[in-house]
Design a protein around this nucleic acid. Sequence first.
RNA 1: GCGGAAUUGGUGAAGUGGUUAACACGCCGGAUUGUGGCUCCGGUAUGCAUGGGUUCGAUCCCCAUAUUUCGCCCCA
Length: 418
Amino acid sequence: MITKPKGTYDIIDKEATKMKIINRAIDYFCEFYHYEYIRTPIFESRDLFHRTVGEETDIVTKETYDFKDRSDRELTLRPEGTAGVVRSFIENKMYGTNLPKKFYYNGTMYRYERPGNGRNREFTQFGVEILGSNDPMIDAEIISMPYRLLEELGFKDLNVKINNLGSKSDRENYKNALKEYLAPHLNDLCCDCKKRFETNPLRILDCKVDGESEILKNVPSILNYQSEESEKRFKKVLEYLNYLDVDYEVDDKIVRGLDYYDYTVFEIVSSKEVLGGASTIAAGGRYNDLVEKLGGPSTPCMGFACGLERLSLAMEEIGNYEKPALDAYILYVNEEEKIKAILLAQDLRGSGISVDYDTTGRSLKSQFKEADRNKARLLILLNSEDLQKGLITIKDNLTKEETKIDENEIIDYMISNG
RNA sequence: GCGGAAUUGGUGAAGUGGUUAACACGCCGGAUUGUGGCUCCGGUAUGCAUGGGUUCGAUCCCCAUAUUUCGCCCCA
């Protein structure tokens, strides 16, 4: 038997229903927030991700799906959504249009990592990118939007953690201060942190091993190394979040894994038990230097991404997601009735009425059962004798009342009783 | 990438080194010869993840592989 590749999964049954609900909520929300839908390629040139996500990051060094096509082009399956949107922004010269551009995407991402609960190699992210505005209001909106969307989907235990990474030079100042502080304690840190000390000292902040140690508890805060301008900006973001009634918590240990972030970064976490170690449902931040780094004009941007599988997983505890009910189920026994059934079904479906019928030769009794399983509101009973007279029996599956009506009036009847 | 655990029909699962692999749900059929959802009766895994090995004999023991899962790492 051929099985699915490791880390992939099929979206079926209840899962499919939930995904449909989630996707509809996303489209609905984004429409009202006035975000444009954008779809970029699932694979891009390898360089794009290496330059955007960061040459030193784990995502790029050990998690990308890299391959060569038949013409030896170096390609990579996208591990995240921002790079493609930024590339498209520059390539299509959208910086020449009315800014800001507000985009949302929703698609599969690929990371070669150890699969587990809420972690897959092929997974789905929905995200928003706003390109061309440095207004702190954008930061607040990028945080409040997923927050409200998640609330709408039933989450009541959300926690927003927010931090300010500041400008490049702010971060350089902080990095130096951090290294200065950590240097005498270097031997007390875990192996990974010793490596990070040189490669990416900021990441030491959210290390799980050393996180609880005294050394890290007294570490200097990045918030104390911000320029006046950066600090002012961050205060403004928080102020707007207050107005928007978003429940947040400033956490100076939040550092994101992608290199392109600066200024505001945030994570939205849920404490749902089913999530286990995958409690971060949405996360994002500002990336004011990325467009320029990729060859476009300097353009301040902000975005977030939200993992749909994790969202779906957490929704398990929130509500009951059943297949939508069927408007009508047609029951028939012989060939003459069957032909009538398929014609009738076609007409009703064309009139916006959801209809189904048996195609496995089930007994009449089983057809009744099948109708119940599908939660059909109306049963259409085809009977050769009645058909000769142009009549069709309709039975209300709730009241059990039966009505015989003229077959020409059935669509009107269904519409007025549906 | 490292360490632990798991893997029995459509589903939830019992079980044992030795003839026909419990039970429940579901599904199909019948009682009810074209009006059901209750009840009763019957059917429903030639197979216990895959490949090797040990054995007279393995679903059960051993090894490998795959997948899932938990923790680490990382992240959505």
